[in-house]
Design a binder for these strands. Sequence first.
RNA 1: GACCCGUUCGUCUAUCGGUUAGGACUCCAGGUUUUCAUCCUGGCAAGAAGGGUUCGACUCCCUUACGGGUCGCCA
Length: 452
Amino acid sequence: MHSGRTGDGRLFSKHMTVRTRFAPSPTGYLHIGGARTALFNWLYARKHGGVFVLRIEDTDAARNTEEARKAIFDGMEWLGLDWDEGPMKGGDFGPYQQSERGQIYDAWFEKLVQTDRVYQLDGAWRFRFERKPITMIDGVCGEVTIDYRDESNTPDMVIKRSDGSYVFHFVNVVDDLEMEITHVIRGEDHLMNTPKHLQLIEALGCVAPQYCHIPLILNGDGSKMSKRDEGAALGDYPRHGFVAAAVANFIALLGWNPKNENEIFTLDELAENFSLAGINRAPARFDYDKCRWFNQQHMAKLSLADFHHAALPFIAAASLPTEEFSEAMASAVKEKVRLLEEVPHAVEFLLDDGFSIDHEAMEKLAASAIARDGLIAIAERFASVDEWTLDTAKISISDAATMVACKPGQLMFPLRVSLSGRSHGPDLNDLLMLLGKSRCVQRVQRMIENLA
RNA sequence: GACCCGUUCGUCUAUCGGUUAGGACUCCAGGUUUUCAUCCUGGCAAGAAGGGUUCGACUCCCUUACGGGUCGCCA
């Protein structure tokens, strides 16, 4: 039969179409680690002009939920990981949900019955392992051997439950065979399953796909990432105002690197540069700060219109008037925020005259010898401007500085705090133009009163 | 506990026997900006430990320690 060996996978041929798959089970939510597995499979398929399959592994009827199914589709769509075959897409190897593939499994199972590779125990069917060392050639880990002569460590596994349903190991293997999957990129938690799968494939008389096990993603402190941990649920990313390209970029670099010093990649660029050889073997820790930095880098590349559009839902969610949130405002904060969820706070004082004034900034102002006089001069100069333009506003500030015998630069901080209530924010020129003459005068006067 | 995989700055990583061990995030200091931020420049910071092999080891081998994974009629 075949190569006489198991575990070394298919000899990769230039003529062979690469077929990868992502096979999540619809229980819970889409985990960031799962998203990365999907991404790597997608990248590998795209890189090699292959086919990316989405298969829903819903064999555990009790734990499946519709929300979880939706989370998978939504997450994939958000990240931009389109599948060539799968639910809502069809394909020649369907159906793509295991719950609908019963007859297919029955047929393959019958082969094992015929060849006496299964036996019944307590009503469940167990697969009889061959008692020999099993060696796999993993695409990432290299050669790994598990000795199946040690029966205590590798008991025969159940592949068909006493209720007649099939277990993961069996359906997963059958589907990869049926769907002609060439490369299986999956989490390292499956590494010890692989010899089981190899044995099954051999018993079925087939050739195994190339397996590649990628390291898991850990929390920042090195602990196992689970449900409630920051960054664990893919669905949280759009909610916090991450853009998809940034998240894909960041998780791609968690466990993979392009072997050069580039860091910012679009999805297409990732696909161009992707290779199995660049995948690491050690688990990576999740760094939320760096993820935010990637987001900032990707947002900076967004067009103003796209950024404005992306920020609008966050303005609405903060109960700020979306119709007043202009592209000019978006422009003023575009490169100052790392997450879209920071936009409302960054612009709220532009949309609402009743903004509060930062304590620390106020104290610094109160301590300044020239702040009050400077602001009085500015208010006076502003008020006398006929045509409010950036030039006339700037001239007014210079004039005010002359009046109180200081440098214009010294008036910037008092003016900034007067206009925005804070010591950090958009460019002063933007503030001046965005607010207009009368609001600027009002705000400066309000500050003068506060300082009295 | 058994069996697997792993271990370079705090974090993500480059290095495929010979390098002042490089880059990025974070942090700090300068510079640019009449202001804030961006940005630019510079700085802090690493080969888990012990044995080998070798002229020479972060790199290869062994041991220990530590981390992760797996040991289900879950996937």
